[in-house]
C-alpha cells in the first residue's frame, strides 16, 4: 500500500520564489509558484500512525518551518506536476533511520503554477514550464495528473 504526504514550508519558500522569477523570465504567465515535497511510503500493516511517526523526523517534517498533510491520491492533483528522479530505487532509510512498517520511500517535488487570478495556468503553459525548466529529462521525469 502507498501512503502519500505533501510537506510545504510555513516560512518564505525561496526555491518557489526563484522558480517563479525564472519562469517569468521564460515568458510563462505565472504570478505565483507553489512547491511541495511529496513523500510516498510503501507500507505494510505494521506501519501504524505513519503521519505521527514522520512528523517527528526532521528530514521530512520540521514543525519549525513545515506543514505536513496527507494526500488522498498517489498521483498529482490537476494542475500539479511532480518531478522525480528517473529509474529511482525507493530508499529504505530516511536521515539514516528506518521507519517501522515502511518498505520504501520516494521523494518528489510538486510544482503548481498559478496565474494572477489564483488559478492554475493553462495546461500547455505548464507543459512549457516543465520542458524548459522544471524537469531535466536527462535524469528526471515529470508526472502530471
Amino acid at each position: 500500500m502507498t501512503q502519500t504526504f505533501a510537506v510545504t514550508l510555513t516560512i518564505p519558500d525561496n526555491e518557489a520564489f526563484t522558480a517563479f522569477e525564472t519562469l517569468a523570465r521564460l515568458g510563462i504567465p505565472v504570478a505565483r509558484v507553489v512547491r511541495a515535497d511529496i513523500w510516498q511510503f510503501e507500507v505494510d500493516a505494521s506501519a501504524g500512525d505513519l503521519a505521527g511517526t514522520i512528523s517527528s523526523i526532521e528530514t521530512i517534517h520540521n514543525p519549525n518551518k513545515h506543514r505536513l498533510a496527507a494526500r488522498e491520491s498517489d498521483r498529482p492533483i490537476p494542475g500539479e506536476v511532480w518531478v522525480a528522479t528517473r529509474d529511482e530505487a525507493p530508499a529504505t532509510l530516511v536521515g539514516g533511520r528506518a521507519i517501522p512498517g515502511v518498505r520504501g520511500v520516494r521523494r518528489r517535488t510538486a510544482w503548481r503554477l498559478l496565474d494572477d487570478s489564483g488559478r492554475d495556468v493553462a495546461p500547455h503553459e505548464l507543459d512549457r514550464a516543465i520542458e524548459t525548466f522544471l524537469c531535466n529529462p536527462a535524469f528526471q521525469v515529470a508526472i502530471t495528473a
Binding site: 525561496n14 526555491e15 526563484t18 522558480a19 525564472t22 523570465r25 521564460l26 531535466n136 528526471q140
Partner: peptide, 16 residues
C-alpha cells in the same frame, strides 16, 4: 549558484 534551487546549475543557466 542560487543554492542549487530546482536543480544544480538550473537557475544560473537561465540567468541574464
Amino acid at each position: 549558484a542560487y543554492e542549487d534551487r530546482i536543480r544544480a546549475g538550473a537557475v544560473a543557466a537561465h540567468d541574464a
